[in-house]
Design a protein around this nucleic acid. Sequence first.
DNA 1: CTGTTAGCGCCTTCAA
DNA 2: TTGAAGGCGCTAACAG
Lengths: 335, 335
Amino acid sequence: MVKATIYNVALKAGVSLATVSRTLNNPEKVKQETRERVLKVIEELGYKPNAFAKGLASRKSTTVAVIVPDMSRASIAEMVNGVAVEARKYQYSLILYVLKDENLSEAEMLKEVVASQADGILYMNDEINEDQYEMLNKIQEDYKVPIVLANTLYPYDNKLVTVCIDYFKAGYEATRRLIDDGRKHIFMLTTARKYMVNDLKEAGYLKAIKEAGLENNIVRTSGDISVNTVHFNELFKESGKRVDGVVAVRDSIAVSFVNTMIKNGRKIPKDISVYGFQNTKYASLCRPKLSCVDVPVLDIGAKAMAYLKQEIDGNHVEQKFNVLHHDIIERGTTK
Amino acid sequence: MVKATIYNVALKAGVSLATVSRTLNNPEKVKQETRERVLKVIEELGYKPNAFAKGLASRKSTTVAVIVPDMSRASIAEMVNGVAVEARKYQYSLILYVLKDENLSEAEMLKEVVASQADGILYMNDEINEDQYEMLNKIQEDYKVPIVLANTLYPYDNKLVTVCIDYFKAGYEATRRLIDDGRKHIFMLTTARKYMVNDLKEAGYLKAIKEAGLENNIVRTSGDISVNTVHFNELFKESGKRVDGVVAVRDSIAVSFVNTMIKNGRKIPKDISVYGFQNTKYASLCRPKLSCVDVPVLDIGAKAMAYLKQEIDGNHVEQKFNVLHHDIIERGTTK
DNA sequence: CTGTTAGCGCCTTCAA
DNA sequence: TTGAAGGCGCTAACAG
């Protein structure tokens, strides 16, 4: 069996190829009788229009480029799930770009994305900086290809449609809960590398700490478990710093901290109360279970795709910053 | 700035479009001087060939379809990382299909994949059954599009190139280690739903148990933490079944079991020795750290992509089953 | 080494 | 409601 083309269908159905094209793309413009006959032949031949020819002729690809830093991050993977399900609704295909490769500059990759003829771009990279933001904005303007940022914040500007949660508020709220619980020595555990998203969590933490007249303590460490374990051991060993509350910017960092403290004889949550961020599977697989901010990553992905589709269709999204609701989940590390 | 075409480049460089095409695809066939001039114009105009036109004319897409069941599974995500890095080496793009959507039959999706003109298909779905296998094989034959299975086993046939580890051997080895350690009541924790890959782990377990003259105990449970926790509590509560060794088909199931047992007052590894499967991040984030079979998922992804590329280039892979080496990592749950 | 030309498979006016 | 015809941007013989 060789791949059927529109000609094969037209011939077998006794119509011109234009009619076949119409029954597929503008069925209302074809007489019902003809349409049914054509559809039947399409079915018989297992015909599917060649995506390239279609894209070339129509200048639309029904394809969206998804740019991610690293698939193995739980939040990224889950967002992609959300994107995939939503994209299906519109019959859109996903073309995936993983930035993990050091050999490729992001500028080079974006040129490729443009060449791929994607109708839109979904960008999810919480480490975005000014240069990257401007580059994306330039692409959007030069090539008229809509871009939506998913869980990617650049709060200094609002040229690109963005879907996320209010990280500042979440950081503030988690810290407040610790304060209201009577905790006095509250630490924030964040990444050594500065990310926009984590900076916001930190700012929220600082606001709450300041309001309460407490001293702020920010620990910048690695996301790598073996590294941060050593770090936590140094900082908080039995005889060490006083600490009775912690907000970590990632679940995995929170869990690693909890493990280290328990090994040092501290009681969780009695001695130290801990909040993580994201509500990944790690949060449920640790002992005690981790309390954390629940970031609806699946919804963020889906919403981002929905907005992108809207932009592609020419209906501009008025609201550039789209903030989704978050919850704080209380589990074993805080009560 | 509007997107530049090959004509713009040809005009500005004072050559024909064929020459531009050549400097891009067969540079050795163009005089160096001309080539440099063309390249310069390409650079200036930021020209990138339209992927659709190129694909249509050349009947090759430089694109590979990646089919996954669910991105949020750690092993899947990591395999995709491996695929992405390897694909970059060949300048191949990835088009992603997530089977998560219940509304879409797999047959329908495969038709879409074919229509997408992908040069090859990478299929990663450890739950594959006979129907699916035959469907894939038919696609490969009918449309002459190579397919490689990554971490996806269908051992009853060998028409499709497959990359995986020896799950039977791994299951056998883990069980043997427990036996050699003197454990007598060794359980296998597996999924209720039967997967090929898990069946093999189970078969390896059974072989070792039989050789040692012990009694086999297979518990089929859910991958869902909240469900299997209840299940483990019922089965193994303090007064309950005797158990001193466990091999679980997934890290997450192993960790959930460990947590449940510790809450019931059992000592790990003294009372019960536990092995997981995969070496995901969960294995390092739990307390005690999980001993497990290390499945090199990143390598599996990369290797699968490499073989696919080879098939696409017409160099058939002789060896259909390609088994990668695995290790067993000893951590806190066994020593 | 370079230019000319004929498609690749489909969409989309424009006529009929 | 349908068909004819001209591209979409590029590759790949074939000439020169």
